[in-house]
Design a binder for these strands. Sequence first.
RNA 1: GCUCCAGUGGCGGAAUCGGUAGACGCGUCGGACUUAAAAUCCGAUUGGGCGAACAACUCAGUGCCAGUUCAAGUCUGGCCUGGAGCACCA
Length: 825
Amino acid sequence: MKKEYFPQEIEQKWQKFWEENNTFHTPDNSDKPKYYALSMFPYPSGKLHMGHVRNYTITDVIARFKKMQGYNVLHPMGWDSFGLPAENAAMKHGANPETWTDENIAYMTKQLKMLGLSYDWSREVATCKPEYYKWTQWLFLQLYKKGLAYKKEAAVNWCNECGTVLANEQVIDGKCWRCDSVVEKKYLSQWFLKITDYADRLLKDLDKLEGWGDNVKTMQANWIGKSQGAILRFKVAEKDMEIPVYTTRPDTAFGITYLVVAPEYKDIEALTTDENKAAVEEYRANARKLTEIERLSTDRIKTGVPLGTHAINPFTGEKFPLWTADYALVEYGTGAVMAVPTHDERDFVFAKKYNLPMKVVISPKDKELNVDEMTNAYTDEGIMVNSGEFNGMKNTDAKKAITQFAVDNGFGEFKTQFRLRDWLVSRQRYWGAPIPVVYCDKCGIQPVPEEDLPVLLPKDVDFSVVGKSPITTSKTFKDTVCPVCGGHAVRETDTMDTFVCSSWYYMRYSDARNSEKCFDKELADKWLPVDQYVGGIEHAILHLLYSRFFTKALYDLGLVGFDEPFKNLLTQGMVLKDGSKMSKSKGNTVDPDEIFKNYGADTARTFILSDSPPARDFDWSDAGVEGCYKFLNRVWRLVSTNQDHIHFDYKVPENRTKVNDDLVRMVHISIKGITNDISNDFQFNTVISKYRELANAISDWVNTSKWNEEDENVFSFAILTLMKLMAPVAVHMTEEVWTSLGAKTSIHDEKWCEYDENLAKASSITLVVQINGKVRDKIEVDESLEQEELKRVALESQKVKDLIDGKQVVKVIVVPKKLVNIVVK
RNA sequence: GCUCCAGUGGCGGAAUCGGUAGACGCGUCGGACUUAAAAUCCGAUUGGGCGAACAACUCAGUGCCAGUUCAAGUCUGGCCUGGAGCACCA
């Protein structure tokens, strides 16, 4: 082997070899247990960024480690290739979204290969290909038939910049997740997936996901937002109408002094008297004008107007006024709120402003509340007062009792409410999977028959149109025939949210080339759930929630035999530069191509794993890259200058010199430590440290070596083990070393190293002697010493004798193999 | 406001169970090699005290305040700071 390390040369050579030899092909049939390692597939934006490099390196090391441990590892890659950027590029450069996407995929594929990732490319998928989106459409139809896909008119989020509607999950702080422009509300007829049917299961099954971080689980739980409460129905005094209200505080029902409906409440006009009509209309018009951000701002001053009518409290028979106010949200609960100013902060503020009456119904244990002296609502627990037969109860008990009373008397029921809304999936854009339905004048909405799938995207479109989807400009797409009556029908021109496409791609990998089915159930059940999923925290709700929903729906449809898609989830931190997120606008990006060119992929891989644990943010530093490059060079030289002393048929001698014994011990300690670090939350940063420690130890040893037979055996063992330990990370370098030394097979087909528990322990230990918990002496002792002997050794120490002289030993605590603490007075 | 996570040298970070705080690296400083530079190698590097200096010794130290314990970076309670998510959700 060459004296110096030339990464680029080595890396090209092995990448070509692996490709030609199909090294990373995963057979479906194998005696080995399966392991499915998966990175979140990328959007083909043009070039890899460092976040990708980090993500895919982490998963690749896991996949390679598991393979060496004897698993049949599935490690596929694909493209989340539908989406708006392709369309925008088409408009800007006059290109076709398909061409633009294909070119990007080709370039990024090249980059992935340059990173030395062990993908089974025969399973590659791209969501924009008809052979893939045919099945996205097919799955949509299955959901439709089950009643899980439906169309309805609703107030939806509209992004003017993107020219399309958005799902709730895609609105961040009232702005579009993609372009950051302010989202408006529009009333449109749109397609939804009924994710709310699964709210309870999506929440409950979070408990099953032991391999997920609490942060992601809590985020999902918050998003689903379950609350337990009651529906109470109030009769309107002036009309024959009822207003149902959702409340989590039925215990405060005797304290209601007014009732609020949202400005968009469906019956609001009927509930308004003629005298109040003008004021209410004006208020509603103003509310419509507000942006979502203004409307939802918590520090906005609360406003409202009375409707003029009244409702009756079924518990007390009291009449109280009806108001409309925009702090009531039409989408949540029933769109109407019972107001109890004394025990709800918002109601309190509102009542003060409009001088509405207040009534205390829950009293704290130690004092009495006086309405006139209250400066804010009392929302803690207490004892029921002014509440008829419920007086004296604890309010927590009264919740149930009062609801039960309402149930028994026919004006209420127990109710569980979720914050989660249905998933709006239609998009008024071209570059997505067409929603496979047609509209017949006679037969209404009709699904496209399965045998007619895929509904292909038309090619004859004009991308320069403004204000409507380019797909509507096609002359060939829209008109079709009704599958039921054969008459004229019009195709749906909306396409699906790209998150629909990405909600099942990980299943398709199990059977990626199947042209008869979305995937074979047996194969899907064999490979899934994904054993280790790795990706960014930004998908904590979006992609991960949608995928869980899809999996459960497909489970109910009998298409798969598992109901959670991802067993273990690793959310990797961001890649920062100088403490802030890498971005083009800040100009602090690092181009992976440059790193490959200057240092090689092995350095890039080593560095991106080295400085921080995977879940934490990673600060890119040029000096750090340099350091890893130097390390790989040092290892290379360590091997190349001593290659004559390395033999594959080494035998570690039983009786060794002290120096050799220390090195053998160090190797075992390293195997143990590295294996544990990877197995335990993939702590690759400490793995890299341990490579260095072992390499340093070998280096030091070489300086003292006499190169007799024993030395050569021990050295061979140490070096070859180091190579295997480094193989998942420095994939090219270790392969080159391995074969240069004469190996006939790939290092990536080697078995992971085993360690000897006895040898992974130090032969002697440093006994720490403490007096009153402070370290006073350190004594080298034999590892085998018993507690009594350790105590004796500690007490015989001259330093200890000096320090405890004249004092009384109260107690001696001995921690075997570690420490003795002498307590003195 | 609620929920989750984090806080350790100049920096990134280490420290299975509560048991030697600062592994490993970066940076910095010093040295070797060299005509010189690069590369490489060796050494020092938490702060303070006592030393002319080396060594030795010693005190303090893991965001703050308490507590539990023979012993706390680690456990408990209460805060502070930063990050993330949710939020007029009734």
